[in-house]
Design a protein around this nucleic acid. Structure first.
Lengths: 115, 115
DNA sequence: ACAATAGGTAGGCAGTTCCCTACCAGTCAA
DNA sequence: TTGACTGGTAGGGAACTGCCTACCTATTGT
């Protein structure tokens, strides 16, 4: 039924369901790998809380850490986002067809329907 | 098309962070609009719980309901999924480059490891 | 060795999620 | 109207989130 596993998909979507964590991903995307403190400086939040967000991202596979002296550099790992795009694929025709105004026609096709 | 605020994105990702709700979307995608009972038959869960899942999907804009007699037909609304795809776009180069083994090179490019 | 720095962990607390059982309202058929 | 059938709502409980402060280890400079 699933290649990645349902629990893994849950973790990725749940990790993305938080503005702070999406912002962390954006920072890593735009600035490259960052230590925790550099990330924490951008949020109105204590560092331990950000550490917990990083843990959620790590367990979802969205970031990796590399120790460098007393710092830990967090790096964006985009593979789970590629999985999200794959997951979206079968839905793509729905929003494309809807834009062309074919949605109502489609509604009647698989089931008895009217609009 | 919409005011894609942070709260709206939170709601969409949170709605997707649950296997039951993703399965509902898959059923609506594959079978077209469905009444609640037809959906509930596919889950090991009481109907009121599924009703709550449908409410979450509705508030995320991922489904719409249309009353038809004593039934309510739920239909897939893919627009928020298009928004998710848009959100993914800036990350796309990361997994493409990673596949080519350019990741480590890229890590050093945008930032000079300020430490 | 000592003090400072980087960052994870423990535990607490309020709010949310996800399931349940009861119950309520609207619609159709006899 | 009564009764069956649709599906949402109320309220409760266990588990999880997301924030905090306090504390711990590990590394580095003096």
């Amino acid at each position: 039924m699933n290649g990645t596993g349902t629990a893994a998909e849950d973790r990725v979507f749940a990790a993305l369901a938080n503005a702070t964590r999406r912002e962390v991903l954006r920072l890593l995307r735009e600035r490259g790998p960052q230590p925790v403190q550099a990330l924490a400086d951008h949020f109105d939040m204590r560092r331990p809380s950000l550490s917990e967000h990083l843990k959620v991202l790590r367990e979802a596979g969205l970031v990796s850490e590399r120790r460098s002296g007393r710092q830990r550099l967090y790096r964006l790992e985009a593979a789970p986002l590629a999985d999200v795009q794959d997951w979206l694929h079968p839905y793509e025709r729905f929003w494309r067809e809807r834009l062309k105004g074919l949605g109502d026609l489609l509604d009647r096709m698989p089931d008895d329907e009217r609009s």
